[in-house]
Amino acid sequence: MNHLAVYCGSATPEDPRYVELAREVGATLAQRGIGVVYGGGRLGLMGAVASGALAAGGEVIGVIPEALAGSEVANHDCTELHTVSGMHERKQKFTDLSDGFVTIPGGVGTMDELWEAMSWAQLGYHTKPVGLLNAFGFYDDLIAFNSKMAEVGFVRPAHQNILIHSDTMPELLDAMTAYQAHTPIFRMKAEDL
């Protein structure tokens, strides 16, 4: 993995553990020689991931929509900063530039990015690992919900291991590196669906 897209919040929670976690994620990726592809902002967890990676000598590629770039939230300290027309183009650029996806704590936008990465993997638009850092138990309920979807039958057996999750970044990166691509829906026969 040369580059990973990092999905996270642009907000700054009151609990300082979240900002520190984001900095550590950026630094860990840089120390492993993995470039960060992220939302291009300088605020919240996004900005902390970027500053952590840059402080550790890493590469940071930001991808920001025009509407946000013009509102003074763009991080011009990035190694590269791509300005795109909107959110759809932004998410496509994340997929094009990265070798996988890591989600750390965030809100609605973060969830949109995570679920799209998982959906695209199921369908076969990409075969890249999709990781979820469950720091502080933040995603316990989401992991349980994903298991519930599988249990009920809304996630096929072939796709139940798309979401890779761990409580620590080193374990998550090791699991993502070992990821074996599944059979996507586009390559399944009707009787398998």
Rank of each mutant, 00 (worst) to 15 (best):
N2G: 08
H3S: 04
V6A: 13
Y7V: 12
Y7G: 10
A11Q: 08
T12C: 10
E14D: 07
P16C: 13
P16Q: 14
R17P: 06
E20G: 06
V25A: 15
G26K: 11
A27D: 12
L29E: 03
L29F: 09
A30L: 03
Q31L: 10
R32M: 00
G33S: 14
G35M: 13
G39D: 07
G40C: 10
G41P: 11
G41Y: 10
L43C: 07
G47N: 01
G52E: 11
V60H: 07
G62D: 01
I64R: 07
I64S: 07
E66P: 07
A67E: 08
A69H: 12
E72V: 05
E72A: 09
C78G: 12
E80P: 02
L81I: 02
H82M: 04
H82C: 02
V84D: 06
H88S: 11
K93D: 07
T95W: 03
T95L: 09
T95N: 08
T95V: 04
D96Y: 03
G100C: 13
G100I: 15
G100K: 14
G100N: 14
F101D: 00
V102W: 02
V102H: 07
V102R: 05
P105I: 12
G107K: 11
G109E: 13
D112V: 14
L114K: 07
A117N: 12
M118F: 04
S119E: 08
W120F: 12
W120A: 08
W120L: 15
A121V: 10
L123E: 05
L123I: 15
G124T: 10
G124C: 13
T127F: 01
K128H: 13
P129E: 05
V130Y: 02
L132A: 12
L132K: 08
L132Q: 09
L133S: 05
F136V: 05
Y139N: 09
D140E: 13
L142A: 11
S147C: 02
A150Y: 13
G153S: 12
V155T: 12
R156E: 04
P157S: 04
A158S: 01
H159A: 03
I164H: 04
I164Y: 01
D167V: 09
M169Q: 01
P170Q: 11
P170L: 07
L173P: 02
A175V: 02
A178D: 11
Y179L: 09
H182A: 10
H182M: 09
H182D: 13
T183C: 02
P184I: 04
R187W: 00
R187V: 00
K189M: 10
K189V: 04
E191S: 04
D192T: 05
L193T: 12
L193P: 06
